[in-house]
Design a protein around this nucleic acid. Sequence first.
DNA 1: CATGAATGAGTATTCATTCAT
DNA 2: CATGAATGAATACTCATTCAT
Lengths: 206, 206, 206, 206
Amino acid sequence: MPAKTERKRGRGADPAETRQLLVDAAFTSLREDGFRGTTARSIGDRAGCNQAAIYYHFGGIEPLLLKSLEESSQARLGRYKATVHDTSDLVKLVGQLETLYEEDRSSGHLEVLAELVGGVTANPDLKAGIETSIAPWLAFVENKIQQATATLPLAAAVPASDLADLIFSLVIGVEMRNKLDGRAERSQRLFRLAGLAAALVDSSTK
Amino acid sequence: MPAKTERKRGRGADPAETRQLLVDAAFTSLREDGFRGTTARSIGDRAGCNQAAIYYHFGGIEPLLLKSLEESSQARLGRYKATVHDTSDLVKLVGQLETLYEEDRSSGHLEVLAELVGGVTANPDLKAGIETSIAPWLAFVENKIQQATATLPLAAAVPASDLADLIFSLVIGVEMRNKLDGRAERSQRLFRLAGLAAALVDSSTK
Amino acid sequence: MPAKTERKRGRGADPAETRQLLVDAAFTSLREDGFRGTTARSIGDRAGCNQAAIYYHFGGIEPLLLKSLEESSQARLGRYKATVHDTSDLVKLVGQLETLYEEDRSSGHLEVLAELVGGVTANPDLKAGIETSIAPWLAFVENKIQQATATLPLAAAVPASDLADLIFSLVIGVEMRNKLDGRAERSQRLFRLAGLAAALVDSSTK
Amino acid sequence: MPAKTERKRGRGADPAETRQLLVDAAFTSLREDGFRGTTARSIGDRAGCNQAAIYYHFGGIEPLLLKSLEESSQARLGRYKATVHDTSDLVKLVGQLETLYEEDRSSGHLEVLAELVGGVTANPDLKAGIETSIAPWLAFVENKIQQATATLPLAAAVPASDLADLIFSLVIGVEMRNKLDGRAERSQRLFRLAGLAAALVDSSTK
DNA sequence: CATGAATGAGTATTCATTCAT
DNA sequence: CATGAATGAATACTCATTCAT
């Protein structure tokens, strides 16, 4: 049925604001309605503007979705970069990461990421865009690992890039499984394991 | 356009065969056409029978999909149980697992699993059925871990169930990422890491 | 999904019994599931036999439905013929009719009739069969009217057939409206009106 | 095969016109194709626009059907209100009503009403909407009865609302029976009866 | 006598996308 | 700059009906 959606934004609106509204709407819709429920209409409605605006501003639904992931991804990465200081104290590092990770969860970033990763199933075109959002993360994690393990003897045998890849895969996997069984406390149990491992490595070094 | 429409099966066919044909068609379609491309039509065409047969025999698409996962899951688990012998030699164990894992990949089991896990995004009703197929796996892995770590000092601090959960999440995550970037050699690199870790633990024990 | 339906009747069953089972099942299904819900499957399930039996025994769904109406119709008409005695006491007559009418309602006969009359909307082929079941009723009512009004002066001006037609149309209309608003007490109010009219005519005669 | 597919309407069309076209198409389809034949396709084809327009403008088939009934209902009621003047001359009143009633029939209003009433059998959701269209009619008839019988002695004993209800049920019943046996002259015979009754009551009053 | 299995045709509905304004 | 209106294509599912046994 036409035009029942609250109040529309009208013609003289600020285009930049409209774009931002759409990006936010896409994020919220992914988070609350899931990938399936995120349709042109659901986004338009949430943004308070017409479905066609999506095409006008972003050229389609898929680019908008990816834009919303990218924005969230950059914001989160910014937080990580600001918070995680160089350290060779692995136990401390794990502690910092756990805090940040909880932020990721509560901000919805991880939910949205998982929703889009799952969405590849329905729309393979999302692949490239997701990879683009992921790449800086891998670089960041790899870099941190290099710093943290620089002094460790096994650093040579264990490529930081492989470790980063493993960690990132684990994050994705955990999030997908959370979606399956709703057991979000999984991450806490895993961080406890990580803490143990860190303590082990640390002690073996000193 | 994944249609084939080769030959129809006709009325006097063996129903058990029809069921199997449908299960196989669902599996193949998930693997080759992806979750999105797996429609009533794609399955019917691949099975060489009418779409309505899906509803007659399974009551709907979703139950058929889950049946096809379950069948594959059981077959694979059978292989694992037959192959992985009790051992406290972790390095050997990792070696055995790598072989089996490669089988998983080439059999399509992991692809299909990932496709369905991703599909939860589009159809949350799949959750329960996927969990059902997953449960025996978790039990199996947990059991193996207990046996393998029985003599290790840290076994007390590290719950086998958490470790199993971690491993399984990692498998899912790796598979999702493979789907994203197509870098299937990821698992080999990860098994190398696992081999190193195993060697480390083993040596620290003796 | 195939063959989950309680227990089937098997091959050596008495055909006459099967027929009756089907007729009863059709009646019950019309009454409880409505015309829409009365499918080959719903009937077969209720009768405890295969859908195909409908075609084997009756040649299709529609003939079976009509058979079930006819059976109910004849049974009811029998009751009417046995109960309504010749009388020129209109008030008494109305009283007798009200009792019988309530039987019609509680037996489900009127519900099923209304359901089929409505069903003409979906399947015009039902028309003829319904008419066939209705015809004896019209004859009966007309006959009773003739007897009851024989001595009345206006009998000549008012064709009994028209009155019968009117009464029957009213019965149908009341039943359709009951289905719309569920106000089944409508018939009681109407019988009160009929009682008043009867008293009026009676008194004007004496 | 009630398709027409003549010319499509295109994008720049007047939306109000489209809506009207759809309402009219629904009415015509109900009348000519019957409830069963009134599908999204039959309506879209008759309106010369895409089936999806039904969902865009009305949210579904059912609301459109009800809208088309409501529109026709209001138009007819307007005619009645403009034509039936207050009178205590029952004979004259019956005469006026007969004319209007014939209009109802030739306009298709009664056919469509009967088709939808029958359609409740297939789609119970129609109930509420039909009731809504019917309500003003009952009020109108009741009101007229009160005025026409104000001076009659039996007016006290006979609630106008019951009489209105009876009359309306009769109209529905007659229309359903017309659909069954196609004997549309039924209404004329009934109006003759009504005329006689009116004359009787009138004469008994003076 | 009866059935399990299979099918072809049809339906409502949803969605991403695109005009014309 | 933005939109309301419109559309084409696709999908899951249901049902009456019919074989082959």
